[in-house]
Simulated assay, not measured.
Amino acid sequence: MNNFSSPKIILLEGIVNESGSLHFFEYSEALPFSIKRSFWITEVPQGGKRGVHAHKKETQVLVALKGSVKVSLEGTSGSKHEFILDQPNKALILPAMFWSEVTFDKDTVLLVLSDQEFLESDYIRDKNEFDEY
């Protein structure tokens, strides 16, 4: 279980020098949960949307490894948030119970890390059902 109630950007540690950039992700107070699942999304057309759902319990961390995405979120209270992930050292912590829509730029690679294994019953895929919470 996690204690995140609002989405937020965190900066990932890294080493940048003439041979390139190395960014990494380690267990820390910034992310105090074990990663149980990871996946990446590629080849989404320019302007294409992914997400378009919420999770009841799952918290995710999103990182645009290449390209950029706009992440539009809505909380159960009606709060709205928008984030641009456009650098591989920028990560978005996306808590449970936020309706998400992720809009892709061309050739983006989005990495998603999760604190839960896949469970279809954790998904809310109908916006009207989400609005009832």
Rank of each mutant, 00 (worst) to 15 (best):
M1Y: 07
N2D: 09
N2S: 06
N3C: 01
F4E: 08
S5E: 15
S6R: 14
K8I: 02
I9P: 15
I9E: 15
L11H: 14
L12I: 08
L12H: 09
L12R: 08
N17C: 00
N17Y: 00
E18I: 00
E18C: 00
S19D: 04
G20C: 02
G20A: 01
L22H: 06
H23N: 10
H23E: 03
F25L: 14
F25D: 11
E26P: 05
S28H: 08
E29S: 14
P32M: 01
P32H: 02
P32C: 01
P32L: 00
F33I: 01
I35Q: 10
I35V: 15
R37K: 08
R37T: 04
R37P: 10
S38L: 15
F39S: 03
F39M: 04
W40P: 01
W40L: 11
T42E: 14
T42M: 13
V44P: 00
P45V: 10
P45S: 07
Q46V: 07
Q46E: 14
Q46N: 13
R50G: 00
R50E: 00
R50F: 00
G51I: 00
H53S: 05
H53N: 09
A54V: 04
A54I: 04
H55I: 03
K56D: 06
K56T: 03
K56S: 07
K57G: 05
K57I: 04
T59M: 07
T59S: 09
L62E: 10
A64K: 11
L65W: 01
K66H: 10
K66P: 01
G67T: 10
S68Y: 05
S68F: 05
V69E: 05
K70C: 12
V71F: 05
L73M: 00
E74Q: 11
E74M: 10
T76A: 12
T76K: 14
S77K: 11
S77C: 04
G78T: 01
G78H: 00
G78L: 00
S79M: 08
K80W: 13
D86I: 06
D86W: 04
P88Q: 09
N89F: 09
A91D: 08
L92I: 06
L94V: 13
L94N: 09
P95L: 11
P95Y: 12
A96K: 15
A96G: 14
S100N: 10
E101M: 12
T103W: 03
T103A: 02
F104R: 00
D105C: 06
K106W: 06
D107R: 03
T108G: 03
L110K: 01
L111W: 12
V112W: 09
L113T: 05
L113S: 12
S114C: 15
S114M: 12
S114H: 11
D115S: 06
D115W: 05
Q116A: 09
Q116L: 07
F118S: 11
S121F: 08
D122T: 09
D122G: 13
Y123H: 04
I124P: 12
R125L: 01
D126Y: 08
N128C: 07
E129G: 03
F130E: 07
